[in-house]
Design a protein around this nucleic acid. Structure first.
Length: 298
DNA sequence: AAAAACACCAACCGCCATTTC
DNA sequence: GGAAATGGCGGTTGGTGTTTT
């Protein structure tokens, strides 16, 4: 990242904070920004320069946001398609609130858009499913955990794990197809035999604080990130061995997995596993094989 | 018809990582 | 090495439109 000239060394200094505009963008401002971005191809400049050079009394950050979230020519507007919803659901089960990474898999969609979509539509739909046993990943802190005693993961966590364990093509259609119009998750469908196959898998996850589920920073963020079981596996019992292999494949070679029962061994102190180290392409190849997903970039 | 409740979403905020000096 | 500036991200807020009462 190139450090631009300090404010004041530039002869076009309109960056004094008191002069910065905030709030909604006017059509004129949009036009200025678009014009400038088109003219300059948006290349090789920092956003504060863009703001200055475009004659906008906005901070660079604001310009960036406006461009990325609204003015970019490759944006796809309008409602999310069922396929996109499916993909968002699935990616969220894998990545948590990493909206930018989710957005990267949905051409023409922005992280903000997906985040809003999730926080309004999907979260609400999951909430309406009316059971604390549902709602994997909705991140609603009001949700109750069933059992956080030693040796038991929360139900929410187990459902999350269940989502990770989705597998068979036949398991995929029940809920996701009904999502767009009449999204209503029957808890038993969702958590037991419907959308995601639930393995009898209640690992203890060795994480403190909000633990596995409630705080995705705890799972994916920070210095310790989440194991993302691939979708192929269907049950822990029958696939222990495979899971181990897949684990090894997905989490680079730094992590040694003793057994799936001792799931927490994935995260020994000092493990330096980060989500960036996952083979995201591989992950997405799995996603692309999601049977009901017919997602195509437009 | 009006008020209240709800839903949506654009934009801001605060934090952290990175880069440059 | 530290300060400064910026980019990027996720969380949150506030305005506005829509629906319900």
């Amino acid at each position: 990242m190139k450090k631009p000239l300090p404010i004041g060394k530039n002869n076009n200094n309109v960056t004094s904070n008191s002069k910065m505009r905030k709030g909604l963008w006017s059509p004129e401002e949009d036009e200025k920004l678009v014009k400038y971005m088109v003219m300059s191809s948006g290349q090789g400049q920092c956003w504060s320069e863009v703001a200055r050079n475009a004659g906008l009394q906005r901070c660079g950050k604001s310009c960036r946001l406006r461009w990325i979230n609204y003015l970019r020519p490759d944006l796809k507007r309008g409602a999310f398609s069922p396929q996109e919803e499916d993909l968002i659901l699935h990616l969220h089960s894998l990545l948590g609130n990493r909206w930018s990474q989710i957005a990267a898999q949905l051409p023409g969609r922005t992280d903000n858009e997906i985040k809003n979509f999730w926080n309004s539509t999907i979260k609400k739909r999951l909430r309406n499913s009316s059971s604390p046993l549902t709602s994997p990943n909705v991140g609603d802190s009001s949700l109750k955990t069933r059992d956080v005693t030693q040796g038991n993961i929360t139900m929410r966590a187990s459902n999350t794990m269940a989502m990770f364990m989705d597998s068979s093509p036949s398991s995929s259609s029940t809920v996701t197809r009904s999502l767009p119009m009449n999204y209503s998750i029957d808890p038993t469908v969702f958590s037991a035999s419907g959308y995601f196959n639930v393995p009898m898998f209640m690992p203890q996850v060795g994480m403190g604080g909000d633990g596995f589920y409630g705080n995705y920073n705890g799972i994916l963020g920070g210095n310790r990130d989440l194991f993302v079981p691939p979708l192929e596996c269907t049950s822990m019992d029958e696939e222990n061995g495979d899971n181990k292999n897949l684990l090894d494949r997905n989490i680079n070679n730094n992590i040694e997995v003793e057994s799936m029962e001792g799931f927490e061994t994935c995260w020994q102190e000092g493990d330096d596993l980060k989500v960036e180290e996952w083979d995201l392409e591989e992950l997405m190849s799995v996603v692309s094989s999601f049977p009901f997903l017919d997602f195509q970039s437009e």
